[in-house]
Write a protein that binds this DNA or RNA. Sequence first.
DNA 1: ATAGGGTTAG
Length: 296
Amino acid sequence: MLEVGCRPMVQTYTPIVQGYCREGRVDEAKELMSTMESAGCPPNVVTYNVLIRALCDAARFDEVRQVLMDSRTKDWKPSTVTYNTFMNGLCKKGMAKEALEQLDVMLGEGLDPTDFTLSILLNCLSHDKRIHDAVCLLERNTSLKCYAGVVAYNTVMSRLGEMGHWMGVLKLLTDMIKRGVMPNTRTFNIVIRSLCFRRKFSIAKSLASNQGFAANVVTYNTLIYFVFYYSRKLSEVKDLIFDMTAVRIAPDEVTYTIIVDGLCRDGFFDTATSYFLESLEIGLSRDLFAVLTNRL
DNA sequence: ATAGGGTTAG
C-alpha cells in the first residue's frame, strides 16, 4: 500500500528537484529532498542522480561523497548511472585521476561499467595527458565485461596521433581488428592523420587508395593539408585533387580553404584568387571569402 | 525521469 501511494509522489517531486538543479539552486534541491524523506516519501536513485549531477557541476565533490556514503543507511542504492554521473563530473573539472579511481569503487560495489562508463573515462583520460591510462583501459576492457566499440578506439587513437604516437595508433588499429571491432572511415582518417603528423606521406597515400576502406572528402582534405603544409608545392596538391576526382570525390569548402590559405601564405595571391573563383561553382562560402580577404 | 563519445581547414 505504501509502495503504491509513494511512487507517484516521487515522480511528482523529482522534476521539481531537477528544476532547482537546472537553475543552480542546489541547496533548495537538497532541502526539498530532506522534506520528501521526512514526509515518508524518500527520493529514489534518479532523484539522487539529478542532485549528484548538480553538485558535480558546482564542483561540490565532498558533498557527492557524503551523499554516496549516506546511501548505505538509506533505502536507495547508487547505480551505474550514479557513478557515471560522478565520474563525468570529475572529468569535466579536470580530475581524471579521481574519476579513474571511482571505477574501482563501483567495481567494489558489484556494479558493472557499461560502454557509457568507458566513453566517459576514455574521453577524459585522452584529453588530460593521461593517454597511457586510456590505452590501458582499452586493453583492460574485455576483463571489465563491457565492450569498447569503434568510437572508443577512435577517441584514443585520435589523441595518440595528435601526440605523434603513430605506432601506438597502428597497434590499436590491429588490436581492434583482432577483437572483431570493425574500423570505419573515421578510424582510417585518424590513422592517416597520425601518419601525416610524422610525414609518412607515402604510407598515408597508399592507405587512402586501399580497396579495404572507403575514403571520403575528409581523407583527401587531410592529405592535401599536410602535403601542402610540409612540401609547399602546388603540384603535389594538384596530384591529390586529380586522385580524388578519379574516385569521384568532389572538393568541398574545406578543400578550397586549405588551398586558398596555403597559397596566400606563400604569397601566390593570384592563384589563390582563381581557386576561390573556382570554388564559387559549389557556392559562395562566407568563411572562405573571409580567409581570402584577410590574407589579401 | 538521471550518464557519454570519434575525422579535415581558417
